[in-house]
């Protein structure tokens, strides 16, 4: 049954009491827009992340790692597909519009997919450091997420990302306990990925953050980042790696790792699609979409008799 609220106050009281909003509800338009933007950003990030994993399938060392890359590619593209369905259903943009905006550089995706991955160790750093940061932020959203379809999806995404993390940990251990060259290779990758991983959580939350107020996020960016540093700084130091700038320092009295101020300019550059690898990444994504147009056309024709008329906004043109 569609529910409606007579005022924003009443709607916010519903959210504060732990209420969950469903697609058939008559939700305030500002909430719809905010949730939509958040899910679109997540969908874009899964999609760009999937392409990043795909790039490494032919170059991954050994059959098992290639299988791992294939699995991750399938996971991320599958997540993107599900998220685009949920986002398109909100009626703000169609999936075709979202993809067009992504390929034209008009919308954003996670900062970590704006950097190049020159070596296999970069891929390991992504699987270990970046996936862990993404998982932590997804868990914080899942915990108290007020939009039903998104919360249900996150449950599965989190279970699958947990599996990626485990693979990442195995790959890291291999390099950490390997030859001096392997150790150096990972150190160089860590130097490149530490800062982007920390910035993945976003800049410190503003006081009027609507995502927090409407229970889309449940924790402040800086709290998530701090917990991540407390966990990963000792782990990486324990494996014999050194932490690059911004380098946290262990306070012997409190046992806490204290972070220096972070330079946010690299993050803000990625948010404008002006990161070190942004142009190539977006171009690759657009090229992959254009190159596979004939596959979608063939599938659409084959499915023509099976697929019922799509409800508004849920299908790409």
């Amino acid at each position: 049954m569609a529910r409606s609220w007579s005022s924003m106050d009443e709607f916010e009281a519903f959210l504060d009491a732990g209420g969950m909003v469903e697609p058939n509800d008559d939700m305030p338009d500002a909430y719809r827009q905010e949730v939509f933007r958040f899910i679109e950003f997540h969908a874009n990030s899964e999609y760009m992340g999937g392409l990043c994993e795909r790039d490494w399938i032919p170059r991954a060392p050994g059959v098992d790692r290639k299988l791992g890359q294939m699995a991750k590619t399938q996971d991320e593209i599958g997540h993107a597909h599900l998220l685009y369905m949920v986002a398109a259903d909100m009626g703000v943009k169609t999936r075709a519009q979202m993809l067009d905006d992504l390929f034209s550089g008009r919308t954003r995706f996670h900062n970590v997919f704006h950097y190049p991955t020159p070596t296999w160790a970069d891929q390991v750093a992504i699987a270990f450091l970046v996936d862990a940061a993404a998982l932590a932020s997804q868990q914080a959203v899942f915990k108290n997420c007020s939009y039903g379809p998104y919360k249900r999806m996150l449950r599965r995404v989190i279970a699958e990302e947990g599996f990626h993390m485990r693979q990442g940990e195995e790959m890291l251990l291999r390099l950490a306990t390997g030859t001096p060259m392997q150790h150096e290779l990972f150190q160089a990758a860590l130097d490149r990925w530490w800062m982007p991983a920390l910035q993945l959580f976003g800049p410190p939350a503003k006081d009027n953050d609507l995502l927090l107020r409407w229970h889309i996020k449940s924790e402040r960016n800086e709290d998530l980042r701090d917990r991540y540093v407390q966990k990963f700084a000792p782990l990486l130091v324990g494996y014999g790696f050194s932490l690059p700038d911004p380098t946290p320092v262990l306070d012997p009295d409190t046992g806490r790792w204290e972070m220096p101020d972070i330079d946010w300019r690299p993050l803000f550059a990625t948010m404008k699609n002006e990161g070190p690898d942004s142009a190539r990444r977006v171009g690759t994504a657009r090229g992959a979409w254009e190159d596979t147009a004939w596959v979608r056309a063939a599938l659409d024709r084959a499915a023509g008799s099976v697929e019922p008329a799509a409800s508004a906004g849920t299908e790409a043109a």
Binding site: E22, P23, N24, M85, P149, S311, T314
Partner: peptide, 10 residues
């Protein structure tokens, strides 16, 4: 991947 037309969930 399926879609429910009733409750609009994947």
């Amino acid at each position: 991947t399926w879609w429910c037309d009733d409750c609009r969930n994947p």
